[in-house]
Design a protein around this nucleic acid. Sequence first.
DNA 1: CCAGGGCGTCCGACGATACCGGACAGGGGC
DNA 2: GCCCCTGTCCGGTATCGTCGGACGCCCTGG
Lengths: 253, 253
Amino acid sequence: MSKSTPIPVKAVGVSFEVVSALQQLGVAGVGELATHLETPKSTIHDHLRTLEELELVVNDNGRYRIGTKFLEFGGYARQRMKIYEVARPEIVKLAERTGEHANLMIEEHGQGVFLFKSEGTDAVQLDTYNGYRVPLQTTAMGKAILAHLPEERVRAVLDCHGMPQITDTTITSETELFEELEQIRKQGYARDREERVRGMRCVGAPVLKDGTVLGAISVSGPKSRMQGQRFDTEIPNHVLRTANVIEVNMAYA
Amino acid sequence: MSKSTPIPVKAVGVSFEVVSALQQLGVAGVGELATHLETPKSTIHDHLRTLEELELVVNDNGRYRIGTKFLEFGGYARQRMKIYEVARPEIVKLAERTGEHANLMIEEHGQGVFLFKSEGTDAVQLDTYNGYRVPLQTTAMGKAILAHLPEERVRAVLDCHGMPQITDTTITSETELFEELEQIRKQGYARDREERVRGMRCVGAPVLKDGTVLGAISVSGPKSRMQGQRFDTEIPNHVLRTANVIEVNMAYA
DNA sequence: CCAGGGCGTCCGACGATACCGGACAGGGGC
DNA sequence: GCCCCTGTCCGGTATCGTCGGACGCCCTGG
């Protein structure tokens, strides 16, 4: 989890930075990437040629962008995950029943990774996409996951990634977080009150197996619809029921 | 499209091969990858450490697998595609209306890439996943795309990727293919009669803009349900109507 | 309990090669 | 037509990726 270790194969790291830069810039030319990464044009060009040959980036006459080969590797990795296979159809049903977005998240390298989402009929466009990463403590799903990790791992995660303030309700105090995690364990589900995106609220529940957490699911929607009775009992019940179904199906698989 | 050119940055190619091997093997250890790639253990180990540091692969105490970082890059690339944004909700509706799988494909590097699928209520499990690549001429969507590419590009694609026989109905003759493409242009949509997967049939239509093809959509299902009136007119009408909606919405965006 | 073989991991030296400065070609706009 | 700013190409040198070999671990079977 540290970034102090120099990686064995530097060139791969450079290519990785090029792709990461493309992720920030969307599309970019050689020169633009060179200045952005403070690396000579020719070096960037070498890497882009390589990545293009491997179909990892696409070249629209001089304008480069990330290719769909990443989607292939990533899609394959996701396909192989049991929790994805089991949860996916239940997530779809959950979105249909609530009319809101329903999501699946797992933890990887101390971050929350959105694995799948199903868009409810009433749902607004979200900023997340498959593979999108967020600090765990900023989402209901992430908090549901943290609540069921050993305390030392929670502290390690916080040490590694910090507790950045995203909105004005983001939890930035460690003691406050641990109190909330305790409460989440008691009531079985977690809430997110605009802690990552203003105007969005979320209800999340963990997916457990033999006491260890495999991931979490959630329903998210605009504050206007996520309040009162619906936010307090209706949505949580839907989420908990779905989580339970997934847990049962995981046990059989 | 050729693979004769030696790539500028060899090390990136090696890492790429490691990841590709992981895609074939699912999970594997250092030794296993070393023998599979006929490369010294230590070299593989170096690359795995690098890839792990970059969160591109995950290490479950000695067993390596592809990480979700690929999903992030790929998900980002997909998110940025206008055709994905526009087509996605229509694909979902198409799946609901027909009860079968509905799909979105684009062409990249002469191959067909599955960009998105929505699973109908009656749908059986598919072998495809996001980013999955297939030879264009083996699917209805691919043929719909080929039908609207310039003939020299079609020939270039066939030269580069060949016409492998996948099932006993796969098209392997160039003249036969060109005849079918002509027919597809006339009737506006394409059919797949178990040409890639035994027992599966498919109806696909292109998404066009100013005469150039942006991608294709399809409905696919088991032969038992994809026949007679339903296969001949009902499904094609749904597909064509959806393709038209997408084209109109693309024009506005 | 110990020997053996398999594993993942580490180390260090040599030589291939990635990096980068600089030169070139093409195209769009004053 | 000129200029500037693209993307592209080339070749030398110092770097760093490669690979043989050794280590320590775990599991298995004697």
